[in-house]
């Protein structure tokens, strides 16, 4: 009796020990990219619950939109990733070049503009281009984009250089001047206006962190910057505030995109659905201080002030912008930042 019990216990015990190993082997592996830095939090906020729910095992790699595209281009038939995180400006280009599979568009629980044109991707987070300024140095609050041209801000402003996506700024200024950003006349007006801002610019930054560091060091009093980066600066320095001007804040969604010819397609789709579900969206927003794309995501009261107000966000025509981006970038190099 004891012997057979013993044997059964051992067999059961062995089975119990083997089961997780066997099951773990069955979990599909997903290769997902993110931008690095604070997005390393995805490991704890997304990957661990995803594995706990037995949906798959996620391996993250740090790639910005550019290096992700370069690597997709180099390995078209056997892509190195299954899901890529791209800024919206790249999503259209990468999808149009045939590297992505379109997503199922039926997602009613996401805010307007969260789904990329032609369903190439769905926004995991909605960043934006906003203005931050030091209120101890800027006596009259900044309420309009055109306030950046004020004489009291001479030499105290910084904004992106052409190494970064400047089409956001061009379109926003066109809009602030009352024009339609998809019309050449409005764009020309925007460039004419931007040529006049040079005396106010301390320098054009090539890396977003330079913008934050300059305002923290006190070298500039106002900066055009990604909302997701304004939040940590505000948190560390209560004198620095968000302007969120009345003409609006350009939305810069970060899309999750399904790679064509990627592996474990079903698990990849499940990953995207998982990231866009309400609990994960709330957790992401609270952790990364970037606006969620889910309508009902809840963000703790204390964090709400740091997020860009979604009612001010507008989404530019990304396809139009993508077709003009190189031309505007060259104009920016020659007319604005030189």
């Amino acid at each position: 009796m004891t012997g057979s019990m013993g044997r059964r216990t051992v067999l059961l015990g062995a089975g119990a020990l083997a089961a997780p190993a066997v099951l773990a082997q069955e979990l599909p592996v997903l290769r997902v990219t993110h931008f690095g830095g604070p997005y390393n939090a995805l490991t704890s906020v997304i990957a661990e619950p995803f594995a706990a729910a037995r949906l798959g095992r996620v391996v993250y790699e740090t790639e910005n939109s550019v290096t992700a595209l370069t690597k997709l281009q180099a390995q078209r038939e056997a892509p190195p990733f299954d899901i890529v995180m791209l800024s919206r400006g790249f999503t259209g280009r990468v999808g149009g070049a045939g590297f992505l599979s379109p997503l199922d568009p039926a997602r009613s629980d996401l805010v307007d503009g969260a789904i990329a044109p032609r369903n190439w991707g769905a926004a995991m987070l909605i960043d934006g281009i906003d203005i931050m300024y030091d209120r101890t140095k800027v006596t009259t609050p900044i309420e309009s984009w055109l306030d950046l041209w004020r004489p009291d801000l001479r030499g105290l402003v910084t904004m992106p250089s052409a190494s970064l996506p400047v089409y956001f700024v061009v379109m926003q200024i066109a809009r602030a001047l009352g024009g339609d950003p998809t019309q050449p006349a409005a764009i020309d007006a925007a460039f004419a206006k931007l040529r006049e801002i040079k005396p106010n610019i301390r320098t054009f930054y090539s890396d977003p962190v330079q913008g934050s560091q300059m305002i923290e060091r006190g070298e500039v009093a106002a900066a055009i910057q990604f909302a997701g980066r304004i939040a940590p600066v505000m948190r560390g320095n209560p004198n620095i505030v968000r302007a969120s001007p009345r003409e609006g804040v350009v939305g810069a969604p970060y899309d999750l995109c399904l790679v064509n010819n990627g592996r474990n397609r079903e698990a990849a789709i499940a990953y995207i659905d998982f990231c866009l579900a309400e609990p994960q969206q709330s957790a992401l927003a609270a952790r990364l201080l970037v606006a969620p794309s889910h309508r009902r995501a809840t963000v703790p009261e204390a964090a709400q002030n740091f997020l860009v107000p979604l009612d001010k966000v507008w989404f530019p025509d990304e396809e139009f912008a993508a077709s003009r981006a190189a031309e505007w970038s060259r104009r920016w190099q020659r007319e604005v930042q030189s």
Binding site: V66, L69, T70, R93, S163, P165, A326, S329, Q333
Partner: peptide, 8 residues
């Protein structure tokens, strides 16, 4: 870099 990477 701007030409190769930003402007593709």
């Amino acid at each position: 870099y701007d030409e190769a990477v930003t402007n593709l």
